[in-house]
């Protein structure tokens, strides 16, 4: 996977999380994975299609998701949540949407043309994700609410 695809996601994730959560983000070491891998419990996914194709997954534990959503809701003067309800899921999904949207905008300015799918969210225990034929790059980020992993699997369309 070319690094040009990845940097915009890393930069956007960093910037958007900092802006909407008002928190410091600590970036972990990036790593590549080509086999199936476990998902932490709450995964928001956005599909990409165009010059490149693939998907971006935003993965975190349920507790982290509740805290992240609560912080985003509180910052707007809205009620925080204590369980991952519809509003909580919509909030996490929107976080994924903002990060992906900003990254796609940056990639577009670099000349890559593709579109986004509306985001979807999966929740559950013992989930795994695999992308046959595509390596996934994982960008771990540590925030006060816990760990968020951004998992990007993209390939050029042939």
């Amino acid at each position: 996977m070319r690094v040009e695809y990845i940097n915009p996601f890393v930069e956007s994730a960093y910037g958007v999380i900092q802006e909407v959560l008002g928190a410091e983000v600590e970036r972990g070491e990036l790593y590549l994975k080509s086999t199936s891998m476990p998902v932490l419990g709450v995964a928001a996914i956005v599909g990409l299609a165009g010059d490149v194709e693939g998907r971006v997954l935003f993965d975190m534990s349920k507790e982290t998701a509740i805290q992240v959503a609560s912080q985003m809701l509180r910052s707007m003067g809205m009620e925080p949540i204590d369980e991952l309800n519809d509003m909580g899921r919509a909030t996490i999904t929107e976080l994924a949407n903002m990060i992906t949207g900003q990254a796609v905008t940056k990639l577009h300015d670099l000349g890559f043309k593709f579109d986004l799918s509306p985001p979807a969210i999966f929740t559950g225990d013992n989930m795994e994700v695999s992308d046959p034929g595509v390596e996934a790059l994982i960008v771990p980020m540590q925030i006060p609410q816990g760990k968020v992993e951004i998992n990007v699997a993209i390939r050029e369309r042939t």
Partner: peptide
């Protein structure tokens, strides 16, 4: 109001008749 700020998309929306375009967050 969108998370996408791609220039050609913004341009298109304004040409079609949008009064303004707000990029998220």
């Amino acid at each position: 109001i969108s998370a996408l700020g791609k220039q050609d998309l913004v341009k298109k929306a304004l040409l079609v008749g949008a009064r303004n375009y707000i990029v998220k967050p």
